[in-house]
Amino acid sequence: MTSLISSRFTTRRSRVQDWLFGGIGAIASLVTLGALGWILADLVKMGLPHLSVEFFTADMKSAGREGGIGPMIVSTFLILVCFLFPAIPLGVGCAFWLSEYVQGGSRIARAVTGGVDLLASVPSIVFGLFGMSFFCQVLGLGFSILSGGLTLTCMVLPILVRTTLSAMTSLPPDLRPAAGALGLTRATTLWQILLPAALPGIMIGITLGVGRALAETAALLFTSGYSTRWPESIHDSGRAISVHIYDLAMNIPNGGGKASASALVLLLMILAINLVASLLADRCLKSQYIS
């Protein structure tokens, strides 16, 4: 009889523990999701009234309290172009070399991957500091869209290298001997067989990188500058949307409404980018399992 009683006791205790763990978890999750919901609700509530077609196309007025963010959207887009142009060959090329031309364990491969990993841990403000004095001053590019894009290239490079590398290593291993047995050169194998097969994975990396670049502010503060004019070339200074939000929030009294509208726009852009990435990922999985 004693054993029966003690077993009932343990059952009750474990049920209490179970409730306790579940309760704590539920509260933690509620706090987190509640905060996220609060942020989104506030942004929509404060920003939505300011959204209109004009907001996307019009010039800024009264230091940002009135008008739209047309020039900022164009600047942001140009910064992204300047960022992607060097970043794609550099990141994808680096990953190709690591996966196809050197052994994973070799000293040079470890040095390069270690360097890329360290680069990923450098905080964005340090990229800003480096970009300001190297691209803007030493290379003489000034506060320009080009400087901002190049600074972002340095910052987002590790994401591109890592995603491309993982896309390459998840390719079926028998493609390489198949190509080798047909007498294809490594270059042909890479461009005609491995690259097409890894393309969806590489595209995921690029979209993730674009998302990261869109969200970045600290690296752009002192590289692409604050100018709110319509940029005429990549050598002009241009204000990214994120920098615009920062400026409105910190320096412009009563800039909150337009700032939240801009934040809403930025958030929507990032959501769209994430959606593209997850669609690509779905397609990636499908192509691996079905075909």
Binding site: L175, A178, L182, G183, A197
Partner: peptide, 18 residues
């Protein structure tokens, strides 16, 4: 490469390019 053109190979697992 020329050697491999003269000497073809077929593997255990079918390995067409995707």
């Amino acid at each position: 490469l020329a050697l491999r053109r003269r000497v073809g190979m077929v593997f255990q697992k079918p390995n067409p390019f995707p």
